[in-house]
């Protein structure tokens, strides 16, 4: 045997595989479908009781009813307008304050502790207060979502401004660019990736707060629909509502992704 080894060259054993994430299509979808099929089967056979989980096909039927009766829009439109107005307010003010914090040391010293103090407050706790301040109608709902999206936007924005490549700012100064030009042409575009990724978090928080905002005084809205389903222990409607919220999350995330691809095409 040992004599033969000289005549029989062996291939070098390959030791380099694995540890490399690969993109495999369709598996995510398959997991989803399998899980739903499993629940459907479990609820039909009866080993998942109808108290534990609703039957997926029943959720689907509830969803269809929602569309056919037009109730989907009756619930979705108020929620979307609350999310749009609230988040637009919170994000606009948040980006503005975040940029100011990023640019001026005095404002940073004054506002960063305030923002840090506001951030961990569960905004839901302030809802009764907002009802007194802004009224039980749309005002308090806008305010809740605005405050909820404001704090993460501020933190993301000033972080993004801080992270703008200093050599670019140095370059601007060395070419004699004015302060305002540097902010507009270097700082803001440079901070945009960070601001947009902060926006993903902010909008997701806005969707979460939608349910909270619709706790007080909302007859229509996805959040009100979910709360109602919960109090009626109507699991089909509860899940249909949750699916709508998830869909909303996927949709807004996709929208931001699309904006990123368009506006941030320059990124490596």
């Amino acid at each position: 045997m040992s004599d033969n080894t000289h005549q029989n060259p062996q291939p070098v054993p390959f030791r380099g595989g694995g540890f490399r994430p690969q993109r495999i299509r369709g598996v995510g979808l398959a997991v989803f479908i399998l899980l739903i099929a499993f629940v459907e089967w479990g609820t039909r056979v009866g080993f998942i009781s109808n108290l534990t989980l609703p039957r997926p096909s029943a959720v689907f039927a509830t969803f269809q009813d929602l569309i056919e009766t037009g109730m989907l829009w009756k619930h979705l439109l108020p929620s979307l307008s609350r999310l749009a107005v609230g988040a637009a307010l919170g994000v606009t003010v948040g980006v503005g304050v975040g940029v100011l914090i990023g640019l001026f040391s005095l404002i940073r010293a004054g506002l960063v502790p305030l923002v840090a103090a506001l951030f961990p407050i569960p905004k839901i706790a302030l809802l009764p207060l907002f009802v007194i301040w802004f009224g039980i109608d749309e005002g308090s709902k806008y305010a809740l979502i605005a405050l909820g999206t404001f704090t993460p936007t501020v933190v993301a924005t000033y972080g993004a401004v801080d992270n703008v490549d200093r050599t670019l700012i140095r370059m601007g100064q060395s070419f004699g660019l004015g302060w305002f030009s540097i902010v507009r042409k270097i700082v803001l575009p440079g901070a945009l990736p960070g601001i947009l990724s902060g926006l993903r978090v902010s909008i997701a928080i806005g969707i979460i707060l939608l349910v909270a905002a619709e706790m007080l005084g909302a007859q229509y809205g996805i959040g009100a629909y979910i709360l109602e389903a919960g109090s009626l222990y109507d699991l089909e409607r509860l899940f249909a509502g949750v699916v709508i919220l998830s869909g909303l999350g996927v949709l807004t995330s996709g929208l931001i992704g699309w904006i990123e691809r368009r506006v941030l095409a320059w990124r490596v």
Partner: peptide, 11 residues
Amino acid sequence: PLQKVGAVIGA
């Protein structure tokens, strides 16, 4: 809808 009796009283 206001969720809790306390909230209804306040409102």
